[in-house]
Design a binder for these strands. Sequence first.
RNA 1: GCUCCGAUAGUGUAGUCCGGCCAAUCAUAUUGCCCUCUCACGGCAAUGACCAGGGUUCGAAUCCCUGUCGGAGCACCA
Length: 536
Amino acid sequence: MGDNPSFREHGDQIPGVVGGVVGRVNDLAYAEKRERLEELAPEELAEIEAEDEGDDHDLPDLPRAEEYDEVRMRCAPNPNGPWHVGHARMPAVIGTYKERYDGWFCVRFDDTDPETKRPDLEAYDAILEDLEYLGFEPDATFKASDRLDIYYDHARKLIDMGGAYTCSCSGEEFSKLKNNGEACPHREKDVETVLEEFEDMIAGVYDSGEMVLRVKTDIEHKNPALRDWVGFRMIDTPHPREEAEEYRCWPMLDFQSAIDDHVVDVTHIVRGIDLQDSAKRQGFLYDYFGWEYPEVVHWGHVQIDAYDVKMSTSTIAELIDEGRLDGWDDPRAPTLRSLRRRGIRGEAIVDAMVGLGTSTSDVDLAMSSIYANNRDLIDEETDRRFLVRDGAEVPLGGSPPDEANPPLHPNHEDRGVRKIPAGDAVLLEPDDLPQREDRIWLKGLGCFQYTRDTLQYTGEDIDVVREGDVDVVHWVPANESVPVRMRTMDGDVSGQAEPEVAALEPDEMVQFERVGFARIDSVDGEDGTLAYYTHP
RNA sequence: GCUCCGAUAGUGUAGUCCGGCCAAUCAUAUUGCCCUCUCACGGCAAUGACCAGGGUUCGAAUCCCUGUCGGAGCACCA
């Protein structure tokens, strides 16, 4: 109708005219449709098929990816502790892009604040371990604190170009001027003086707070966040890394990161929305140096629905210090280590994170989607076992079979069966205890009627279960069961498992029937077997 | 206060650039049925969304404006 405006007044008649044709086309078989389309408009067909191929990707294409020889990205964590679940988004997305574009990514520890965000020496390796757990291996690893000379050199060049000045205003003073769009007196210092003072900063002549190096941008820029920002500042506290403990003059993230991204040839920066102004700030630096700023993808904040604990490294660290969490891998902690110990595969987390896409709005990740992914991965290979929580002992009567032999996995009978002796009494979960005179089916063993506080074997046919009259429940022998302590997100539960559970190895996964999946953590502790609950 | 950004079912997401079988995709979730000696897995079905109001147009999830709500930055933190 855009081509033939005269049709417009008859627009409402179009459906009637076109509808019949559309209906006929819809009735054609797929192959026939394809054939007809190929005759009429081969170029349309090609387009449709090209779209279909793109449908496999969960993530949108990276901007202008095809214009670079190699897609190069970086993951730049602050090494202040092991990663929480939210941190997985960065490697998940970067790693997925790396695979798609056959690209490259490095880990660069942005550890340029020895004081406020003081690095934790153990966190460097902890983060690399977390990364490995998620299934990624960086192509290179750097520490910003090893690279101060690179930043100093670039600062010197910038000063030479008149792009930076040393400033001794207090933060408060400068902030006031800046908000009014006014320059401070130090802005017009000559290059020689600035250079000298910057060398003094490097030499550690000044104390913390006495002098900074500001990048000259536009003091009247309409966005106050971009006006003459600090590139370097003095910090009295030595860096925790021995290799870096002599430095006193430290670059700010915006400076350090800007230089590093260019030096290692990063083509695509992928990061959180909190750094959205960073790109603009750093743009001034790139302009001075005549560099081109990488493509940027920002995303919003991620929250996970299942945790009471706030997902922040420092909060988790505090809770551990206070003894309210047992450590970084406490099942109640929203950390990757916790999920790993519970037996959740890194891949399940990565898939969930990739599913979030890269939208800039804030998102809530449902823990259930990680669970669903994980169940998909482990269900087929995980053997079944019985675990009775808070078991109530009930004697057996009526000469039931000595032993039950349920399969290790219902879909894989070839794996064999379990041996569960029945003995004189069994443990049942209190909720499963039947009403008096009601029947119940002890899985693998047979039908029982609850009479006079005893389960009397009635030996009926399994048909009673098929007919829906009798509930099937899990059970363990009262005498020979294995004590199990199971740690969950909601606290510990204790129970008794079937005897063969004693023979499981640490790190093995099990599914406790009608309870859920769990990872065996240790087998010879004081409380017997220690398991971590994975998910239903 | 100044400056940015965003808004599709409970959750996440596709579609938005370039308006047209979009009464809106897929996954997850919830519920029901089937399968089953587990409440797992599998199969089937149901549930459920274009923030609001205006405008442009024959036609708006899509374009424009206003509003509302949400987020971020304005640090000598990362």
